[in-house]
Design a protein around this nucleic acid. Structure first.
Lengths: 216, 216
DNA sequence: TGGAAGAGAGTGGCATGCTAGAATGTTAGG
DNA sequence: CCTAACATTCTAGCATGCCACTCTCTTCCA
């Protein structure tokens, strides 16, 4: 049940139900979720290790502000992980795994045609998860997701405004093509290029919404 | 003070004071460290997220067995992170940072000459920490360390037997040289080559001490 | 004698009282 | 009117009681 409160709080932070900088009152959370302080404390401890909240002893826990340093760091980490995964996978990926990728990409094309951005976003996540899962390493996805969490929180502030599903789809196909031709160098390059795109969309946010950011 | 018990337990697991598979009794830990169950629970929760212990609800907490899959995954992750860091750093590293690396390497040479393996190991860690810190990303080191922890636990079973400080020193210098010549490709290659060496020393352990391993 | 069922001990997880310290609002003094 | 010190109120963190569940050892029956 601590797991449940953890996921609940995490989701609330990511979709800005809890605003950056806002205090998270344990007593409030307890009565809202109908649980005791123990599971809430454990959940907050996990959120603190992820950097989503900042705990000040004997004072309070606060939702972390956006930090351009942490966002860049998260982007760097995910690029390091997924680019290496693509390179590693190029010489090992099976035809079945490639077929799963193609199936996912076909669905992405439908979502683009129907302008279903929510559906596209889900398939985007699944596409990257498929690639990481194909390596056979089980925890890679959770590490990448943890690294990515700060980028993702900022992305939600930007992407509804400036979508780029068309370009994203092309880049996804490029990754698939590099993998299917079993070219490690091209696979790393395609994945790296793809992941570097988003950061350019996020950078301006610091100037547009400075109140959300931690003055590093 | 939960932090203190966490570090204490973590160290005990890493140097095999707690053997793989052994049960960790909370009550025992409480009276040993003289603390209550709350900080112990929090520490164990953190260890569980790192994969160092396995918690079976209402049954017990057990030190994780070695797992060749997790060891390979940790090695993959660290290579992904540090190789990318080396590539990233090649075009950004300052002369001061290079000087710090050189100073560290000079000390490593002394340790090799004096056959002080413990001292060399400490400098080895510092060398890699220096490189990660030079990127300006603050959490990189803790992520790499968390990823590496399973490899490190296995390493301690091997390296006292089969040291390779001489070869390691040569590889460290190669990394430094690639960085100082500001060559991203060579830097990534040198770091990747260096990190891939250790795994070859660990692989045989699975056959030598199968009782320590989780039959994946 | 073997196997299964039951009783007991032990475990992790949740709930809750308590304490030390930080922040804020108020009051007293300059 | 401003400043500084104090008191009140809040917080996180630790200690501890309680409970539901698991495991093991013993006992009883086939």
């Amino acid at each position: 049940m601590a797991q449940r409160t953890y996921q609940s709080l995490r989701a609330a932070i990511l979709d800005l139900t809890y605003l950056p900088g806002q205090a998270m009152r344990k007593s409030e959370i307890c009565e809202t979720l109908g649980v005791s302080r123990s599971p809430v404390s454990e959940a907050i401890a996990r959120l603190a290790t992820e950097g989503l909240v900042r705990v000040v002893p004997q004072a309070g826990t606060f939702v972390s502000l956006f930090s351009m340093v942490e966002i860049r760091e998260g982007a760097f980490l995910r690029e390091a992980i997924e680019s290496s995964a693509a390179e590693y996978l190029a010489s090992r990926i099976t035809d079945e795994q490639l077929a799963l990728l193609r199936r996912n990409l076909k669905l992405q094309e439908i979502m683009v045609a129907e302008a279903d951005h929510g559906g596209f976003y889900g398939l985007d996540r699944e596409f990257h998860a498929l690639i990481l899962a194909s390596t056979g390493f089980r925890k890679l996805q959770s590490v990448a997701e943890t690294a990515w969490v700060h980028v993702d929180r900022a992305r939600k502030q930007v992407v509804p405004v400036r979508g780029r599903v068309g370009e994203t789809l092309v880049e996804h196909w490029a990754i698939h093509d590099a993998l299917s031709s079993r070219d490690p160098v091209a696979s790393r390059a395609a994945m790296g290029h793809h992941l570097r795109q988003l950061l350019a969309y996020i950078e301006p946010l610091e100037k547009e919404r400075p109140e959300l950011f931690d003055p590093d």
